[in-house]
Amino acid sequence: MDFSSLIDQIGEHTANGLTKGAIYALVALGYTLVYGVLRLINFAHSEVFMVGTWAVLGVYTVLGATGGSGVGLVILATALAALAAVVASASTALIVERVAYRPLRKKNAPPLIFLITAIGCSLVLVELFGHVFRVFFGPPFGRALVSIPSLIDTEVWLDLGKTSITNMQIIVVVGAVVMMVALDTFVNKTRLGRGVRAVAQDPDTAALMGVNQDRVIMLVFILGGAMAGVAAILYTMNYDITKFDIGFLIGVKAFTAAVLGGIGNLRGALVGGLLLGVVEVYSSTLFSSNWEDVTAFVVLILVLMFRPTGILGESLGKARA
């Protein structure tokens, strides 16, 4: 128990926690959107994020961008990488939906079956990057940790005495919040968003009102995938690494965050993600980094015991979300 260190560096730890939590929150949106509409845990979503990080690496490699590149190239590479990550993640999510979920949806299979196909899909995706692509294209694919060039140097932007906040932390948190506000507005204010909410509320009635269910479901997977793509570019900018199985732990945490905030609730994903990130960083200071996963799950169990629908409650379907 290291309280003095926690209190002493509270600002620093909070900043780290929020950065971590912002990534969780973005990935959590994918779980929450799909759950809100289909009542289904998309366990393959973690791999959607993983594919995004590889897309970033791919763009950097093709453009030859490294830390020493000129300003123009850095901006171009970052913008293209972000785009590539979003496209790659969204299309992965879409493919998973088409291959693994749609045939089962037509048969109205129980949720357990979706879970198994999701596990199968995530295994396939992981192995594509961990083994299959290595056989055909060689490194950097494979089971080793791959470093991604860091184009923008980390520097301190805000110096508040004991707390110094870096540009990366600001980019990650601001980027995540902006994306989330955009998504929230999209779901609440646009015609397509209204379709999403309608299907979440009552699929049959929505269909009677002329909402194309299949299109809405595809849209939901694309939106969730795009958010995971944004998470991927922010993650690679901040941590400069990727790996074939990088998605697993982040996926588990993001799902925990989604449940914590209230699954199916977009704002809940933000609250849950940020809270989980901060709790993890605090607890790893208090105890040791070995225990941070335990605290994450203990917090989840405690919250569910006293508030079984998460902090903000489930409500993609209700007017509030």
Binding site: P103, S122, E127
Partner: peptide, 20 residues
């Protein structure tokens, strides 16, 4: 060898889609 997990994943999806 290393192809096994990949094959397992494909088989998992195939079996469940064809025979839920």
């Amino acid at each position: 060898d290393q192809w096994r997990p990949f094959g397992f994943g494909v088989a998992l999806v195939a079996v469940m889609v064809l025979r839920p």
